[in-house]
Design a binder for these strands. Structure first.
Length: 491
RNA sequence: GCUCUCAUCGUCUAGCCCGGUCUAGGACAUCGCCCUCUCACGGCGGAAACGCGGGUUCAAAUCCCGCUGGGAGUACCA
């Protein structure tokens, strides 16, 4: 076995057969974090050898998801989704690397390390069925190993690798020593023909040609590893260091599937998750920092980069826990500078042609965001949380009445409040001024009796921010309008 | 079936490599209390785990073996 490539180079190699999933994103993240921490290179390679299942739409989805989360690549396709790419080990799309694979394929064929197989699907299925019934692993019989190779132009065939019979041992960075016996693997198909390589073959060629030093990928690839190592040896390639990440599981502890939660990561963007929250969350699915940081939960991308240690990733699969993601997102929202949060909220705030009985300046809008910030779990919550600023919801008059109060008493208090507001200037309509101004009323009637009806009159809601804060953004005129409405309702 | 793999609160995990400091720590969720005009936020507190059985040892969550249970792979997909 040759030594691995000395310079740290990792790759994230998704196949564009579907949108970017949580599992994919985490694999990408761990590769990226590892590369950044070690000062190595992160390569993005598109594994689109299966033309029938690969789509440009998915490739674009993958690329925009990656850049949204904040994962950047040193080599690979252009970020803009064009056909361009950067880096000196390309092309970075397997579909553009056909001649490279062909060369190695022909070499293997010529040296007799690979051969054409003419077996039909029916034959293969029969072989498998019989193996299962006898309780032995169903591997290819090797029937065509010594078949006449000359007539492959006429008869349909595939290319198989003549798997040498032996033990293959590799040391997984996360799991330690893993042993396979190639007798349980058999002669695998490595290409449909010289110009159509299959996954295991293409990966081996690319990892070598791109000088990949560490292959960090999902645990579902662990069984592919001995196949790839055998191929590397046949081709005289180096064997990278392997690190197999535990899977992200659904709540039933099975692999996260499309229909559970493993939908496109971009859905999380649309629902108002912060990229840094997603990154923080994903990083902690299966990994945990060491030492003094082991009880810290909130990490910025930079902090993750600094603390990341591949050898500390968990061996067991991790269940995806949406509640924790929500909490983390809320925490990241609270930690965001208000101006930045405001920018994030803007698309949700002004997303459609909602009825504005009231229009606000950006200064006011930012004030509104500040008021509801602590109530946001996802950014899209800003929509419902701020609705009442734009349009007073209709409410029952009973809602105005504080606990033991009567509607008459409430009405009387609201009259006094209206008088107070009609006597103040716009500049005085601030929480700072209002709070002491309400003091006499409150000491006379009690906090609840005053504040509750005012707050309901201004918000129309059972729960909301405080009345003074609302008044401050609404302004005197709108406050009086809403008080008048409450007065009419309660009379 | 076969191959590989994993195993600490419901969930994410610290501790395990280098046995004693673990009456097992943190976080999410949950329950209670406090803050409070309300809802959130926040603060405080509670309940909650070393899968089982052997062994090694003065001593095991930590080391070894077995069992059980889970997961993944088993394609002319990746």
């Amino acid at each position: 076995m040759q030594q691995f490539h000395p310079e740290i180079r990792v790759r994230f190699a998704p196949s564009p057969t579907g949108p970017m999933t949580l599992g994919n994103a985490r694999t990408a993240l761990f590769n990226w974090l590892f590369a950044k921490h070690m000062n190595g290179s992160f390569v993005l390679r598109i594994e689109d050898t299966d033309v029938a299942r690969s789509h440009k739409d998915h490739e674009r989805d993958l690329i925009s998801a990656l850049s949204w989360i904040g994962i950047t690549w040193d080599e690979g396709p252009s970020v803009d989704g064009s056909e361009g790419e950067h880096g000196s080990f390309g092309p970075y799309r397997q579909s553009a690397r056909t001649p490279i694979y062909e060369e190695y394929l022909r070499d293997l064929l010529k040296r007799g390390l690979a051969y054409r197989c003419f077996c039909t699907k029916e034959q293969l299925e029969a072989d498998a069925a019989s193996a299962v019934s006898r309780g032995i692993p169903h591997i290819y019989s090797g029937r065509c190993r010594h078949a006449d190779q000359s007539d492959h132009v006429q008869r349909p065939s595939v290319i198989r690798f003549a798997m040498p019979l032996r033990r293959i041992v590799f040391t997984d960075y996360i799991r330690g020593e893993v042993v396979f016996d190639t007798a349980t693997i058999g002669d695998i198909v490595i290409a449909k023909d010289e110009r159509t390589p299959l996954y295991n073959f293409a990966v081996v060629v690319d990892d070598e040609r791109m000088r990949i030093s560490h292959v960090i990928r999902g645990e579902d690839h662990i069984a592919n590893t001995p196949k790839q190592i055998a191929l590397q040896e046949a081709l005289g390639f180096a064997t990278p260091i392997y690190a197999h990440l535990p899977l992200i599981l659904a709540s039933d502890r099975t692999k996260l599937s499309k229909r559970t939660a493993d939908i496109s990561i971009l859905n999380y963007q649309q629902r108002g998750y912060l990229p840094e929250a997603i990154m923080n969350f994903l990083a902690f699915l299966g990994w945990h920092p060491h030492g003094v940081e082991s009880e810290k939960e909130l990490f910025t991308p930079l902090e993750l980069m600094r603390s990341f240690d591949l050898s500390r990733v968990q061996k067991a699969g991790a269940v995806f826990n949406p509640e924790k993601l929500d909490w983390l997102n809320g925490q990241h929202i609270k930690a965001l500078p208000i101006a930045e949060l405001y920018q994030y909220c803007l698309p949700f705030l002004l997303s459609d042609n909602r009825q504005h009985s009231h229009s606000f300046s950006s200064q006011q809008l930012m004030g509104i965001v500040r008021l509801v910030r602590d109530r946001l779990t996802v950014l899209s919550d800003v929509r419902s949380e701020t609705e009442f600023f734009f349009q007073l919801p209709s409410y029952e008059k009973e809602l105005l009445v504080w606990k033991t109060d009567s509607i008459e008493h409430t009405h009387a208090i609201l009259r006094r409040v209206r008088e107070l507001f009609s006597s103040i200037s716009e500049d005085e309509c601030t929480a700072h001024f209002l709070s002491p101004a309400f003091e006499p009323l409150i000491s006379e009637h009690g906090k609840g009796s005053v504040l509750w009806p005012v707050r309901v009159a201004l918000s129309g809601l059972r729960g909301s921010p405080g009345p003074f804060e609302i008044a401050e953004v609404l302004g005197v005129a709108e406050v009086i309008r809403r008080l008048d409405h409450a007065l009419t309702l309660s009379s």
